[in-house]
C-alpha cells in the first residue's frame, strides 16, 4: 500500500481577488497532473489541524499569495519551523508556525518544506485575479510541478 508522502497546502480566499491565486493554482495542478503520492489540500486559512497532515509527510509545499511582494513575482524559498513559538491570537497559522506545531505535537514533520508565494496586487471583493497574477500562474505551476518531481512522494 502506498501513502501520499508529499503535501501541498494551498491557502487563500477565492472571493478576495488575488488571495485566490493559490486556489487557482491548485485547480490548474489538478488538471495538469502531479506525481502520484502528492496530496493537495486547499483551505481559506492554515489551521492547527493541518499539523497532523504535516506530521505524516516527508515534504511539504505551502502555497500562498502576498501583497507584500511585487505583483506577479513568484518566489520559492525554504521554510523552517518557527524558532520561537508564535503568539497566535486567533485560530489560523503561518507555515513556520504549523511546522513547529507538527514537531511539538507529533515529534515529526516534513524533512523538507518550501513556500511558494505569488505576489498579489489586489484583495478586493472579486473572484477575478489581477492581470499580473494571472500572467504569473504558468510560472508558478511550473515551479510547483518541478518541486513535486524532485520529491520522493511514495513510501
Amino acid at each position: 500500500m502506498t501513502h501520499p508522502r508529499c503535501l501541498i497546502l494551498a491557502c487563500g480566499n477565492p472571493s478576495r481577488g488575488d488571495d485566490g491565486a493559490a486556489w487557482r493554482l491548485a485547480e490548474m495542478a489538478a488538471v495538469a497532473g502531479l506525481p502520484v503520492g502528492v496530496r493537495v489540500i486547499v483551505q481559506q486559512q492554515w489551521t492547527p489541524e493541518l499539523a497532523e497532515d504535516l506530521a505524516g509527510c516527508e515534504a511539504a509545499l505551502f502555497v500562498d499569495c502576498s501583497i507584500a511582494d511585487e505583483a506577479g513575482v513568484v518566489t520559492l524559498t525554504a521554510v523552517k519551523p518557527a524558532e520561537i513559538a508564535p503568539n497566535y491570537l486567533t485560530h489560523h497559522m503561518d507555515a513556520a508556525g504549523l511546522l513547529r506545531l507538527a514537531a511539538e505535537l507529533y515529534g515529526v514533520g516534513p524533512e523538507r518544506a518550501d513556500l511558494l508565494v505569488i505576489g498579489g496586487q489586489s484583495l478586493g471583493y472579486t473572484e477575478e485575479l489581477s492581470p499580473a497574477v494571472e500572467a504569473a500562474l504558468p510560472r508558478a505551476l511550473a515551479l510547483m510541478q518541478g518541486w513535486a518531481a524532485t520529491q520522493t512522494c511514495i513510501q
Partner: peptide, 21 residues
C-alpha cells in the same frame, strides 16, 4: 495560545485537533 496548550498538556492539544478535524 495553542503552543502554550501543547507545552502544558499535549494530549489535550491533540484531542482538540482531533475533534475539530
Amino acid at each position: 495560545n495553542i503552543f502554550g496548550v501543547v507545552g502544558a498538556n499535549a494530549a489535550i492539544g491533540k484531542a482538540g485537533i482531533g475533534l475539530r478535524r
